[in-house]
Design a protein around this nucleic acid. Structure first.
Lengths: 128, 128
DNA sequence: TGACTGTATTACCATAGAGTCATAAAGTAG
DNA sequence: CTACTTTATGACTCTATGGTAATACAGTCA
């Protein structure tokens, strides 16, 4: 963490992060990361209720994370903040590496497990 | 955002981010980013209540973000996840650049403002 | 042993916020 | 105009969670 972060920044950081700390909003951002989409398209892509999506989109818009464009009946939203991509890259990288670690841990477990039960003549799995 | 993120990841990402989306926890992480600290030291550094800090530390520990070490009466905590530093760097960079943008915006405003009111002979500031 | 210190936990309150339903508002088509 | 579509909003419920006070627990020292 960089040297010293002024206290006022903590609140700003927390507020910004709170926007990302919700599965529905992440789902919406993921949908918008591919292309600009109307509200109903986002609803369809995320499988969430329309009112719910509309509310989250308002939040994201007010925060400046997405941009709003009206065209006839529809309203189109698209990403409008470089932080979105960076943050997702960082998180995905972290989660992927964690998943990898988890996998190899499981592998090791399975490995030692099969070794210890190798000489069990009964054929049944024997734990410890 | 990377191509397609599986739905299960969204929940994991949100949960992870939720840990950072709180001023008190950020304050704690900031305190721990400098050095290992006992609970009471964290309490002192953050200015939060002891019970409160203890709870947050438990959360962070369970999530694997900080490591716990007991020594006599005291319990020492330290950062234990590379994500912490990376995330903070990213956020700080973002916030700083935003602050800069805000600053130059204000400067421009002041500039045009002083120009429009330059020829006002009364000496009073004249808006539009 | 008892007194003291540092930490964790419990119980509680207050609030924020996510979701949903119903409905309003805005735009289009007939 | 009415009927219809798309989006936004208001009212409401319910849950999660941050904060705090009181207290339990654990370790040290006399």
């Amino acid at each position: 963490m960089p040297a010293t972060i002024p206290d006022e920044f903590l609140d700003a950081m927390a507020e910004k992060l709170r926007l990302f700390a919700d599965p529905t909003r992440l789902s919406i951002l993921r949908a918008l990361s591919m292309r600009e989409r109307s509200v109903s398209e986002v609803v369809e892509a995320t499988g969430r209720g329309q009112a719910n999506v509309s509310k989250h989109l308002k939040l994201l818009t007010n925060a400046g994370l997405v941009a709003r464009r009206k065209e006839g009946l529809r309203v189109y939203y698209k990403l409008d903040d470089p932080l979105v991509g960076k943050l997702c890259d960082l998180l995905c990288a972290t989660l992927v590496s964690e998943a990898r670690a988890e996998l190899s841990r499981t592998r090791r477990l399975l490995d030692t497990w099969s070794k210890t039960s190798r000489r069990d003549k009964s054929g049944r799995v024997k734990t410890r």
